[in-house]
Computed example of a mutant assay.
Amino acid sequence: MIRSSQGGRMMSESRIAASYARLLHDYLQRQGHDPSAVLGPQTLTTQHFVPMAVWQTWLAAVDDHEGRRPALGLRIAEGVRAQHFGVVGYAALACANLGEALQRMERFHASVYDANPAHLSVHGDTVCIEWGVARGRPGALVDETGLASLVQLSRDLVGKHIPAREVWFVNETPADLAPYRQFFGGEVRFDMPCTRLVLDAAWLAHPLRKSDPELLAMMDRQAEALLQLVSQVPSAIEAWRRSLVPLIREGRTTLAELARLHHTSPRSLQRRLADQGTTFQALLDETRRHLAEAHLKEGRLDLAEIALLLGYSEQSAFTRAFRAWTGQPPAQWRRAQLRGASLPGASVHTPAP
């Protein structure tokens, strides 16, 4: 079982990614409504995150605007795409199958939906994703939109309708259960002790149809552009470093994987690295450090998103590595860079995407 812990934070401190909040704006536009007229002024273009309280207010405003029609969260979720999950969604597109994608989204869920921690587990022929109530209850609209979005994204990734075996919600039973049973395709229960999604485990091995080559190529080009900002290295090392970019993003950071890409054996690659005065671990650390520093300077990504793109399973692992490289945690290093850039005569170089 993979567990994500958010410590002692409460629901009042929770937040969602601005990319996920865009889902609501896209829904309103599909309905022919002006999002600003319904939701009021908003700052999605300048924020990484939206406070949970604001998300709750926005959902309630749309619910009022539509006259409290049943199953609003399900209708909103119908338009979900990988980009609404931000970097986590993009990283999921690089996975080989749905199981890998769900694990990646579960591991980094807090960078998209920072409410109660998620727990993913496999029991026999079922897979269960569960959210408790330790940090509070965000409400029916938040829960239903979140769970339906995860189900819809999974269906979009594999290109098939994935019926749920069972769905639980902690909220009170709505007047009409039919829309929920139709959307999820299985038994839906309310007034339960936790929020839960149960699927057939066989879906975990299903390959993704939505691996997006253009999107992944764009991510690789951006990473390579960031690497070009650092000092020049011998051509052999540059080739290995460029090959590491997608491996790092996909979490396949081993000597064997790099050797396979270069059609050689791990032993031969090790010797060639030694001839250049380096090792695989040194090359990996150097590449990750340069990418980390460039992403931090650029300022577009949250620390959890940077950790994911660098192939770390937890943000804390990225923080430890960055401290070892620079003597500072990444947040402190970023603040220092921003202060330096604000000084008279300072300039910031941002690579083209």
Rank of each mutant, 00 (worst) to 15 (best):
I2V: 15
M11R: 08
M11H: 09
L24G: 05
H25D: 11
Y27L: 00
L28Q: 06
R30F: 05
Q31S: 01
G32P: 02
H33I: 00
H33T: 01
P35D: 01
Q42I: 10
T46P: 00
A53D: 09
A53K: 11
W58Y: 08
A61D: 10
E66S: 07
L74H: 02
E78T: 11
A82S: 13
A82G: 01
A82H: 08
L93V: 03
G99S: 06
L102A: 07
Q103I: 05
F108M: 09
S111Y: 02
N116T: 03
T126E: 15
T126F: 10
V133R: 15
P138Y: 00
S154I: 00
R155K: 04
H161D: 13
I162V: 15
F169R: 03
L177D: 05
A178R: 12
R181A: 12
G185Q: 06
G185W: 07
G186Y: 01
F190I: 07
F190P: 05
D191R: 13
M192F: 01
V198N: 05
D200Y: 02
H206L: 10
L208V: 01
E214W: 10
L216M: 10
M218E: 15
A223I: 02
V230P: 02
I237T: 15
R241D: 02
G251Y: 07
G251M: 08
R252F: 04
T253K: 14
L255I: 09
A256W: 01
E257P: 02
A259K: 11
T264N: 07
S268E: 14
L273Q: 07
L273I: 09
G277I: 11
L283A: 07
H290N: 15
E293G: 06
A294K: 03
L296V: 03
A304M: 01
A307C: 03
L308W: 04
G311R: 06
S313W: 09
F318D: 03
R320I: 03
R320Q: 12
F322P: 05
G327L: 13
P329Q: 12
P329N: 14
A331M: 09
A331S: 14
Q332D: 13
G340T: 14
G340Q: 15
A346C: 04
V348E: 11
V348C: 10
T350Y: 08
P351D: 07
P353Q: 12
